[in-house]
Amino acid sequence: MLELADVHTYYGESHVLQGVSLGVRRSEVVAILGRNGAGKTTLIRSVIGFSPPRRGAIRFKDADITRWPPYRAVERGMGLVPQGRRVFPSLSVVENLVVARRDGGRFTLARVLELFPRLAERAKSRAGRLSGGEQQMLAIGRALMGNPDLLLMDEPTEGLAPLIVREVGRIVAELKREGLSILLVEQNLPLALSVADTVHVLSRGQIVHSSAPAALMANEAVKSRYLGV
């Protein structure tokens, strides 16, 4: 589904991703872990096309999308739930969903509102007025409106109350059951390990550990050195 080969991404002269290679298979959930500043968001930005890599290649569904503009990657079947949610604050909840609509899949406006009853209740509210948890639901719903095959999620539980963190965890598991491929950046270790098929640990722009969740769980050295737990 998705494949990164030796990706190097820069901000100006600052060399952030230093040769990242990884893959996400159909219906697989791959989690990216790592401390703040490790380069997780930069990895997501490189894949969607916000910050294209300077070297290396990104392939998605049999196309080289390395330097594609973001909207083309979305048209090909990528969905983004960005860090910080980034809902469109002056648009209503329904407008946020409708602008992202791409027909030809199981997710319609009605289906997304059914999945997130809170959003249905606040359909006409401006997105900027929603609570953090509601904005996160909206950001996920908005990504689903594009009927993606691959979902990129960047810290979807950041800054949310425990109850809502559990709700997000439930949604991610549900999407996985539906067969979506997910590249999940998450600082919440238990959540990431419970849902992922594969985990990669990122440090200073390089992957320093890759394994199944259980193997990482048992690896105290990696956990204390790179994750601070």
């Binding site: 973001p70 469109f88 604050p89 002056s90 407008e95 992202a100 409106m145």
Partner: peptide
């Protein structure tokens, strides 16, 4: 709504598929 989305956050607008 797409125009307003592009005013709010042009990068994210591309990230939801708006040209």
């Amino acid at each position: 709504a797409m125009i307003r989305a592009a005013v709010d956050d042009p990068e994210m607008a591309q990230g939801v598929g708006i040209r």
